[in-house]
């Protein structure tokens, strides 16, 4: 069994774990983490597809995809977290009012 395939299976397991928790959890922060784990699984698949053995240089195109994906994901995560914090403030002020 090749190294790339081994890491691909690891990535698929990450996807499975993430999806399972994403569907079942109601905690907002946990959803954010689950989506990040999902993305890590997808990235592992891409990086494993790019691996071409210890001697050959790896395929740079999937690497570029993953780099782009990481930046997109961190910004989306930041947006989600900012929404969560803002929602929390609003609910807190409602609690104070009543």
């Amino acid at each position: 069994m090749s190294t790339a395939l081994l890491y691909s299976f690891g990535g698929i397991l990450l996807i499975g774990v993430a999806l399972h928790r994403l569907v079942l959890t109601t905690d907002l922060l946990r959803r954010v983490v689950a989506l990040n784990v999902f993305a890590a699984g997808i990235a592992s698949l891409l990086i494993a597809a790019a691996y071409r053995g210890p001697e050959a240089a790896a395929d740079p195109v999937p690497h570029a995809f993953v780099l782009t994906g990481i930046v997109v994901l961190v910004s989306t995560t930041a947006a989600a977290l900012a929404l969560i914090r803002r929602l929390d403030d609003l609910e807190r002020s409602v609690d104070h009012d009543t």
Binding site: A4, I70, V71, T77, A78, R85
Partner: peptide, 28 residues
């Protein structure tokens, strides 16, 4: 898997900055 560029970004962005963002929100 010979992806040092990505590992570098993951170290800086993935765990570092995302972790800090999560910590901040959790405290909040």
């Amino acid at each position: 898997l010979q992806a040092p560029d990505v590992a570098l970004a993951e170290a800086a962005v993935g765990s570092g900055i995302t972790g800090a963002l999560l910590l901040k929100t959790w405290r909040h």
